[in-house]
């Protein structure tokens, strides 16, 4: 499978501009709602028409504005899983799947196979409205594969599922799709990380970054991307020495190597260590507010050295929280040098 996309489309609030290549891999497009990610998928499927550009799938030109090519969706062989699954409400499970078979295929054995893979036995004669969210999704996936697509597009595939079911489907999806590669759209960072090798970050119609998931999260290319990828603590900074940067707003000097020209520094809440003893890059701090989850807590704190009133945040497990709460020692927040992100 090889997909090349290079398109532009004028939308009401911004211009969408995306270009990427995809080859034997699973990719997620990550971005806030209204960032143009769904439109991108729709352009690839042919449901929407880009203003300019080119889309090529396995040597078939699907769209080329210069040559006036715009293959209609029914001839693109691109499967599309809608957020609401879009099952045909007047058809049973078997009819929903059956209508998608291309002519000349051995429908009977393929139907049995799909019913089996997607665990739909017993539901063959049911109508969509009688099915649970998870069952509906499995029918929609089976129907999509029945059409023998060359590429699978998933539009927020898990947003209609909750809790345990969502996790189960995230676990099962790659196996269910078998050898089909997929391009998925989501606003959920964990989902994107779990289900794809590469991630594209998009905002306001522009591609901010496109890289292997580990690389993207460990070393985001710029501050905006880092913020979209969940960076909460960041501030202006300047390098004052080979191993020291100054962070005026936090009122401190941080020890760290790395690049020479620095405009901002950031650190993920998960990487800040809070402890009763000062370590490297440790600064006295006081806790302002705590947001407790079942097993972790987000601690909002301020450094004693900082001039202006704003809060930094750190995430830790609950035992750690108990420990620092019960200690009578002064509290320190430590910024491990290798965890600092420099921009």
């Amino acid at each position: 499978m090889k997909l090349t996309v290079n398109i532009e489309k004028r939308l009401s609030r911004f211009n969408l501009k995306v270009h990427f290549e995809m080859e034997q891999e699973n990719i997620s497009i990550l971005g806030p709602s209204g960032s143009g990610k769904s439109v991108t998928l729709k352009c690839i499927a042919g449901i929407e028409k880009p203003d300019r550009g080119r889309i090529v799938l396995n040597d078939r030109v699907l769209f080329d504005s210069e040559r006036g090519i715009n293959v209609p969706p029914e001839q693109r062989r691109v499967g599309y899983l809608f957020q609401n699954y879009a099952l045909f409400p007047h058809m049973t499970v078997v009819e929903n799947i059956g209508i998608a078979f291309p002519p000349h295929s051995n429908t009977k054995s393929r139907m049995d196979e799909l019913i089996d893979i997607f665990q739909l036995d017993g539901l063959e004669a049911s109508y969509p409205r009688r099915l649970s969210g998870g069952e509906q999704q499995r029918v929609a996936l089976a129907r999509m594969l029945a059409a023998e697509p060359e590429l699978v597009l998933l539009d927020e595939p898990f947003s209609a599922l909750d809790g345990i079911l969502r996790e189960q489907m995230q676990l099962k999806l790659p196996a269910l799709l078998g050898s089909n590669n997929y391009l998925m759209v989501t606003h959920d960072m964990d989902e994107a990380y779990r289900l794809s090798e590469k991630i594209m970050v998009i905002d306001g119609g522009s591609m901010l970054a496109f890289d292997a998931r580990e690389k993207l999260f460990d070393a985001p290319p710029d501050l905006l991307t880092a913020k979209l990828l969940g960076l909460r603590n960041y501030s202006e900074a300047t390098r004052v020495g080979e191993h020291v940067i100054m962070v005026p707003k936090w009122g401190c000097y941080l020890e760290c190597g790395g690049k020479e020209k620095v405009s901002h520094v950031g650190i993920r809440p998960q990487h800040i260590l809070m402890s009763p003893s000062p370590g490297i890059n440790g600064f006295g701090c006081e806790i302002v507010q705590v947001l407790e989850d079942r097993f972790t807590a987000t601690v909002f704190f301020r450094l004693l050295s900082q001039a202006r009133e704003f809060l930094l945040q750190a995430v830790m497990d609950k035992t750690r929280l108990e420990y620092i709460r019960n200690s009578s020692q002064p509290l320190y927040a430590c910024f491990p040098p290798e965890r600092l992100l420099l921009f």
Binding site: K42, P73, A86, A100, M144, A147
Partner: peptide
């Protein structure tokens, strides 16, 4: 989306009209 999905599944316009639009 029901019409859109029918198109991505490769159904012809005619089939979409008779099998989906009309019954619905």
């Amino acid at each position: 989306t029901v019409i859109d999905v029918a198109r991505t599944l490769g159904l012809s316009q005619r089939k979409i009209f008779t099998k989906i639009l009309l019954p619905l």
